[in-house]
């Protein structure tokens, strides 16, 4: 498989200027040295808790936020150095689906207009000419063609998310970035949307960068996974292997804290002490060391680098991996 997306040493530091203050500006490093690839037809999951940088990562890949360091190579072209016209052309090939289908669809615009807009922006196709394609893509996500003249409030959350997926599909992208795309849905509807996304992938061979906090969804939808903590990738690898044999103590904690609908596994709910540190004031060395059961002296002094392990495709950033 050839790599569709290659992210190299991506970093993003947000600077907050203190207005009329003698104190220094303060900085929040939301992403630090993130590298990974997404192959054609592959689903790469990004998992982590609040403040781990997973949404910043998604926005940097789309160049909605300009990264501070590093490169985003899409199909061989570095997006971070492109001129804006070329960037726009490239963007049609990368689309995004957001978490909240209530706020990501324009409530004052009909579904047809919403879906036709990308065709106008990217290809200059007028609404009337776009309608056949709009109806076709609605059918593809399991919505009736009559939805064209309706408005978002006439649909349930699951239906709205199908419409959001249709909007992402209409330009026939190669990569869809899904930022918690099923998190706001009820489980029965969530499974419908996941199966829809998988079917579309099989039919078109597109790739997903799938951001989630839900390990159950991750396990059942993704091929490979990046586990993030405070702006860094702490572990990566094939999803089944990584969750069954975590090498990083944080991956293990995350897995063990995820409740499983099985009473026989009740005792397993392991507790991780402490809270997630603020990205504005991260701990020294390894960002996980204050909560880590395996921490040693070196962990507070030196940040571990993400290094390959002897296992196929597995990488871990830990001084004392399991």
């Amino acid at each position: 498989m050839s790599n569709l997306l290659t992210v190299e040493n991506l970093g993003k530091t947000f600077t907050s200027r203190r207005f009329l203050s003698l104190r220094r500006d303060y900085e929040v490093t939301a992403l630090r040295d993130v590298s990974f690839t997404v192959a054609k037809g592959e689903t790469v999951g990004v998992v982590g808790e609040s403040g781990c940088g997973k949404s910043t990562l998604a926005r940097c890949v789309l160049d909605l936020i300009t990264p501070t360091t590093g490169a985003v190579r899409f199909d061989g072209t570095d997006l971070t150095t492109l001129a804006s016209a070329e960037k726009r052309a490239m963007r049609g090939r990368i689309q995004m689906v957001f978490q909240d289908p209530y706020s990501s669809l324009n409530s004052k615009r009909s579904i047809g207009r919403t879906l036709a807009e990308p065709l106008y922006v990217h290809k200059g196709i007028r609404y009337r000419d776009a309608l056949p394609r709009v109806r076709e893509v609605l059918g593809e996500v399991g919505m009736p063609a009559s939805a064209v003249d309706k408005y978002p409030h006439e649909f349930s959350g699951g239906q709205r998310q199908r419409i959001a997926i249709a909007r992402a599909l209409i330009l026939e992208p190669d990569l869809i970035i899904a930022d918690e795309a099923v998190s706001a849905l009820d489980v029965s509807v969530q499974a419908q949307v996941l199966l829809l996304m998988r079917r579309i992938q099989q039919e078109r061979g597109l790739s997903y960068l799938f951001i989630t906090h839900d390990l159950g969804v991750l396990r059942n939808f993704c091929d490979r996974v990046l586990v993030m903590y405070l702006g860094r990738v702490v572990e990566s690898g094939p999803v089944g292997d990584l969750l069954e044999r975590p090498r990083h103590p944080y991956t293990r904690s995350l897995r063990d804290a995820a409740p499983v609908p099985d009473v026989s596994k009740r005792q397993a709910l392991a507790l991780l002490e402490g809270e997630i540190p603020s990205p504005a004031n991260p701990p020294s060395g390894c960002p996980f060391h204050p909560r880590c059961p395996r921490a040693t002296a070196i962990c507070s002094q030196e940040a571990p680098v993400l290094a390959a392990t002897q296992d196929e495709g597995r990488r871990v950033a830990c001084h004392n991996p399991e």
Binding site: A191, L243, K265
Partner: peptide
């Protein structure tokens, strides 16, 4: 229909709403 972290299996959505 609940995806589980401890096993990969075929999800069976409940059709309809």
């Amino acid at each position: 229909t609940v995806p589980r972290a401890d096993a990969a299996f075929d999800l069976h959505p409940i059709e309809g709403q």
